[in-house]
């Protein structure tokens, strides 16, 4: 379905529910935003689906939306994606088959443990790393070369 982005109005109504109206034509009472490719294109290709999971529209990015809609969508996305991006590795140590990490993310500091790095440290590109901790939480480093030298050194030592 082709829908013009400028016709979209997205807002919270009631407070905890994201609602979408397409011009005067249609209204969707419950809308769920999902990234189509959250790792390769972290801020592009946002799919808006209805409560049943059927796509209403796939946005190239949120920039075409008006300010209020963009804010509403971005807030909803923040609520939905509880994964973290690592900005800094404060400490990391391999001991007895487990790796203990202490990292700084956009959500704050966190300690985590990873096991069997062969499976749980995934290189999506030469510099793009995803760590999965023992609970299945995902920690992403989009570009290891952008980290500070100490963090990079930890990665080089361990991986």
């Amino acid at each position: 379905m082709s829908i013009e982005t400028s016709k979209l109005k997205i807002f919270h109504e009631p407070k905890d529910r994201l609602r979408l109206t397409v011009g005067d034509e249609k209204s969707y009472p419950t809308v769920v935003p999902r990234w189509a490719s959250p790792i390769s294109y972290p801020s592009r290709y946002l799919s808006l689906t209805d409560a049943k999971g059927t796509e209403i529209v796939l946005l190239d990015d949120t920039s075409g939306l008006d300010e209020e809609s963009r804010k509403a969508v971005e807030f909803e996305v923040k609520k939905r994606y509880l994964t973290s991006t690592i900005h800094k590795i404060i400490h990391a140590k391999v001991e007895f088959g487990a790796t203990y990490w202490s990292v700084l993310t956009e959500r704050g500091e966190r300690d985590l443990v990873t096991q069997s790095l062969q499976e749980n440290a995934q290189w999506l590109a030469p510099n793009h790393l995803v760590l999965l901790d023992v609970d299945g939480n995902r920690f992403e480093i989009p570009d290891i070369t952008a980290l500070d030298p100490k963090s990079t050194q930890f990665i080089a030592q361990i991986l």
Binding site: E95, F96, G97, A98, Y100, D111, L112, V113, Q115, V134
Partner: peptide
């Protein structure tokens, strides 16, 4: 240390 599994064995203190 964080345990690899809740209520599990601490590999360092084993």
């Amino acid at each position: 240390r964080l345990l690899p599994e809740a209520d599990g064995v601490c590999p360092a203190c084993v």
